[in-house]
Design a protein around this nucleic acid. Sequence first.
DNA 1: GCCGTTTTCGGCCCGACTGTTTTCAGTCG
Length: 627
Amino acid sequence: MFSSGMTKNEIADVLSDIGTLLELKGENPFKVRAYQAGARTLEAIEEAELARLIEKGELQTMKGIGEALGLKIAELHRTGRLEFFEKLKASVEPGLVEMLQIPGLGPKKIRALRDKLWIVDIAGLTQACLDGRVAELDGFGAKTQEKILAGIRNREAYGRRHLWWDAAEVAAGIVAGLRRLQQVQRVEAAGSLRRGMETVGDLDFIVAASEVGPVVEWFVSMPGVNEVTARGETKASVRFDSGLQADLRLVPSDQFVFALHHFTGSKDHNVQMRQRALARGLSLSEWGLFPADEKHGPSEGQRGSGERMTEDGGQRAEDTGLRADDGGLRTEGGGQSAGGGQRPVLVQTEAELFAKLGLHYIPPELREGLGEIEAAEKGELPRLVEHADLRGAFHNHTTASDGRNTLAEMAAAADALGWEYLGIADHSKTSVVANGLNEERLLRQVAEIRALNASKRFKAHLFAGVECDILPDGTLDFDEPLLRQLDYIVASVHSLFSQDEATMTKRIIRAIEHPCTVMLGHVTGRLLLRREAYRVDVAKVIDAALANGVIIEINAHPNRLDLDWRHWRKAAERGLLCSINPDAHDTSGLGHVRAGINVARKGWLRREQILNTWPLAQVGEWMQARA
DNA sequence: GCCGTTTTCGGCCCGACTGTTTTCAGTCG
């Protein structure tokens, strides 16, 4: 029998899930912690090492793994299944696990709600709060009840949007699937996903096809489709189990580019484009570009969707590498010829469409109606940074703190990406929960990094850094003599998010003014769709960074993506240097830079303005000069 | 559930904050 065991990270996830379930069952908290510690221990070793230890029956030589965990790990590794886990899962209402996502609700309170009010899911909890029953429970009160309700409401409100990263993955699969259909001539994802927005509402796919029936049929039959909300000749809509909605729009081939442009938006960009067309005696819409006085547009049946400009999703066409249009075709030229005849203007690419209106090609990420059309008219659009421009990345974690891959594994991953360098920045000692490094452990890691560099085992040069906590008073977590031994420091706030704006701003600026600070990490602490930014005067922080020659990172973790793109254009014009930092906690996390590239492009950033597009030698010189 | 070993049981574990209390339990990072 072919074995289908689990990888170490999958096993770690199971152990961690067991911890959560035991917690909900009210188990001894130390037992819970033992499972969580076991998960962490597992993450801290190499895949091959795990196999070797299991083989030799030496799992228990690892700190934190005893007899019980050892047996479970071995079984999961061998079979991918664990009876104990299955039974445990079956014994806990799944709704309780979901309730853990509500801020302020932990295992104890959830248990009380279940045992005393028989609440087993969020729907029941909502009703009990509305009835006022929750406030009457021992240990609960009016404020707690209010907070729970607010948490649930937020969840619902946020639930309507999705992280770009998650939506992009879904969209890529759909685009690839549509491309494989023989009836499909052209397909692109549009919407806010194509514009690289940090979150997206739903997905929009524009398709030109020789025959619509089979395409619609494929679309509504995709795996994961929970509900088909519309199904017609020109449009189909589905909702996935995840809550994500996807729209398919079928258009004639000669309308494809117009529909793509229209549904990519944004609304403001489209309004300005239409105005520009009108000024040239033309009328632009999703249906085409026509002489302005000529009646045109959809037949009666097609109307309706035309006026709807949503913040919807789409897939970044560049990612596929397959896009034939738009590529560098930057023709100058007016739309004069366009109005010449009575027939609609035909274009094959968006670049041609822009050219018809006297514009250079405007990349989707810039289409926010924030001056891109004026810049495109004057030929002043920047050459935006591209994913391929990256030569490395800073701010990455290893198993030394809370990462899931070792230093060597991360270095190997950087090699695989063809990067010239990789910056390590594990947590500092005050981040206890993230297993932050104390002085001794940090120095040991620095020595390890120097030795690896000397050994030439990896092509990528490793920079020794730290993600140093900014303490509540703005001082750094380590003394200057220690920090001086590192190549660079990322300074980040991880505690006391509740400080008022003045205090938080002062705190961060003090950290920026520290002579050892090289970069500022996740400036606002926001977690997209989950947690608001802490209160901070970002403008003052940018001023301070500029004054002190400190880099502000674009934290490319799909949940963070700050400093927000809306600040970058102006800040970079003033000379603020950027670094696209993946904040990777495992090797696959290095791929987050792709989300960071979106932010940089939306911020009009050019390659030169981003540290980790520079060649290794230049980065080294820059760091030397700073030190 | 793990660990240690002058232990086979008793301790593991940090600090801040909030809301509930009247001295503290629960949550969070």
